[in-house]
Structures are given as C-alpha cells and as structure tokens.
C-alpha cells in the first residue's frame, strides 16, 4: 500500500496494491495495515498516528534519520536509501507459502475497488453529476503522459481514488502543506516546465475561486492547461468536517457564476456541463482544444450522514482527521473502520 505522495510511483504496477489507508483511503487499506504482523515503512511519513497498527511490529527505513519513530513506536529504525536497503533486504528474506493475509486483503480490496468503480458508472443519469464519474472520465480521457494537479479538498479524494497512473503521468498537489487553491497555479508552472505535455488542473470551486485572478495569466500566456472545476457550490470538505465535528455548517455555501461563461468572456474556451450524458464529449473536446480550456461541471454535493456507530457526542469537538475513520465511496458517510468486518 502507499501513502498519497507515493501514488504516482508505486500504485500503478503493483499487483499487490490494496489501496490507501487514512481518512481519504478506504477500508481495505486500513485493514491490510491493521491486520499485519509486521509493518515495513519505506520512506513514508504518513502523519495520522491513529491509523498505525496497534499490535504489529514496525520497522521504518528513511534516508532522513529524524523521521524515524516520529509517528509510531518502532521496533527497528534504519537510515538509508530505500532502493539500496530493499536490494540488500531481499537477499536475506525467503518466500513463504502462507499467503492468507495477502489473499484476504486483495479480495477485500477488489470488493472495495468495485464499490468505488460502481459509483463512477458512465450510464448514470444522476444530476447533478457524481464527482466520481467526473474524476474517472478525466483519468480515462487524459493523455498517456498527462500531468495532473488537484486542489486540496474533495478533488484530492477523487484524484486519490480514480486517477490511474502509469509511470509516465504525474500528480501534483499540496499534500503536505494542505493549502487551498494549489491546483491551477501548479498547472501553470507545470505547463511552462513541460510545454509539450497535457496539463490538467482538477480544481474545486472554492480553490479555483481563491486564485481565479490568474486565469488572466493563463489567457495572457495562452497556456493550454485544462481546468476542470468540480463545481458543487460548496466548500465540500470543510462542510463535511463541520458536520462530523457536530457543528452546523457555517459559511460553506458558495454562490458561483457560470465559470464557463466567465472563461469565454475572457477569451478562453469554456464549457459548462450539467447533464452526465454530455460529460464525456465535453471533456474530450476540451482536452483536444489547442488552447486553454475551462470545463465547469456541476457536481453533486456529498451530504454527510453521521453513521450510527459514531455517536455525535463522541465526535463533537474532535477534528474529522483525528478520528479513526475513513470516508465511504460517496464521501457522504464516515466509516468507523474498527467496526467494519474484513470480509463483508
């Protein structure tokens, strides 16, 4: 399994991939790590302590010694380059015949993956459009070596779950600092650095609005970046966090203009999509367009429903990120992973 920043490097050709853990991961990733005998951490600094296994032995390899043991108690800390250490480590371990943990987690992952893929059903007529479908189509239609950036907030969740990487594609985000509005500015830098590659910004309506002024830079320099806006009229993740913390949402609703019309008025190709039947052709046309493009997609709000197993008074006053819970496939429910069965 991988932490988010490892997605572009280790997920795509890993036959034993079981997804991510943590709030934006899903249950198979959580159980794979929780149920292991030994956890080997390779250069990761995964920050959420409550997700580390409680019973496993833990070894960590990191070229930065100061990272060792920062997030969990270690049984072994190794300072070194992961590539070099792994090469030496594999010489010393032998294959074992019992693959019950692997097969159980793989089948759990397959089930979880299918659940996610079902939510991105291309036949769906649901309006507003499911953000899962938008993310999947962006991944399907993007070029073989596209560079993606995703805004912090809900676009991060959809990027983590639906973007397919392949060793040539890249994924940029504000994954450590967690700033809003990172996606379009990063896409600008990516396009200057790599003028011949397709650059796609997966922007939230909140993030896009925050640094929207630099759409003028995109126009000025005729940067052919493709800005796909997940427009649900909501600071979606903040809204979820408020509800999960027992607060009534305040200040999360956004009153957006038609961003496609706005782009057009700036001389930038813009298309607004409200009907799921038109989404695929609209994205394909925007991606094929020679210049910059803004695709403004009205997406469904992920209304959070508090599940009965997590009582409001338990959650109240705590950050969603501090809970030992993952978001379900629709990101409208938080799942208490400790209480879900591995085989469902």
């Amino acid at each position: 399994m991988h932490a988010f920043r490892g997605k572009e490097h280790v997920e795509w050709d890993n036959p034993y991939d079981v997804g991510m853990t943590g709030l934006i991961g899903f249950s198979s990733g959580y159980h794979a790590m929780e149920a292991c005998d030994t956890l080997l951490m390779l250069g990761t600094d995964f920050p959420y302590r409550q997700f580390y296994p409680t019973k496993a032995r833990i070894a960590q390899i990191d070229i930065r010694g100061e990272n060792l043991g920062r997030r969990c108690r270690l049984d072994l800390g190794v300072i070194g380059d992961v590539r070099e250490v792994l090469a030496r480590l594999t010489e010393r371990v032998s294959a074992k015949s019992d693959d019950s943990h692997l097969s159980a987690t793989l089948s759990h992952y397959a089930k979880a993956r299918k659940g996610l893929d079902d939510l991105a059903n291309e036949q769906s007529k649901h309006k507003p459009i499911h953000p899962q479908l938008l993310a999947k189509l962006v991944s399907d239609l993007a070029s073989e070596d596209a560079i993606f950036s995703c805004d912090v907030g809900e676009p991060v969740v959809w990027a983590a779950r639906y973007l397919k990487m392949n060793g040539k594609r890249r994924l940029l985000g504000s994954f450590l600092h967690g700033s809003m509005a990172n996606a379009m500015p990063q896409a600008i830098g990516a396009q200057f650095a790599m003028p011949d590659r397709q650059v796609i910004s997966m922007s939230g309506d909140g993030g896009f609005g925050m640094l929207m002024g630099d759409l003028l830079t995109v126009r000025h320099r005729k940067l052919p970046i493709k800005i796909v806006i997940f427009n649900n009229g909501l600071l979606g993740f903040v809204d979820i966090e408020m509800k999960a913390g027992g607060f009534l949402p305040v200040g999360t609703r956004l009153d957006n203009p038609n961003f496609a019309d706005m782009a057009e008025s700036m001389g930038i190709y813009g298309v607004r999509v409200e009907d799921p039947g038109q989404l695929k052709s609209a994205l394909a046309a925007a991606f094929a367009h020679k210049g910059p493009a803004v695709v403004d997609v009205l997406t469904d709000r992920q209304e959070l429903v508090m599940p009965p197993e997590i009582k409001l008074d338990q959650a109240k006053g705590f950050s969603l990120w501090m809970l030992k819970a993952v978001l379900n496939g629709q990101a409208n429910e938080i799942v208490d992973v400790a209480k879900t069965a591995v085989f469902r």
């Binding site: 890249r170 990172n182 500015p185 896409a187 600008i188 200057f192 650095a193 640094l211 630099d214 320099r221």
Partner: peptide, 25 residues
C-alpha cells in the same frame, strides 16, 4: 519573466516546475 497576477501563484508555479524537473526554480 513570467508575469502572474498574484505572487502566491508564482511560488506554486515555481514549486510545480521544480518538482517535475528536479531542478532549481
């Protein structure tokens, strides 16, 4: 000179370039 409208965009853009190329931005 790459003129932007807000300096925060300049810093994010430089960071993206540095991350993709591995070189100074």
């Amino acid at each position: 000179w790459i003129a932007v409208r807000h300096e925060e965009v300049a810093a994010f853009a430089a960071g993206a370039q540095a991350q993709l190329t591995g070189e100074l931005a």
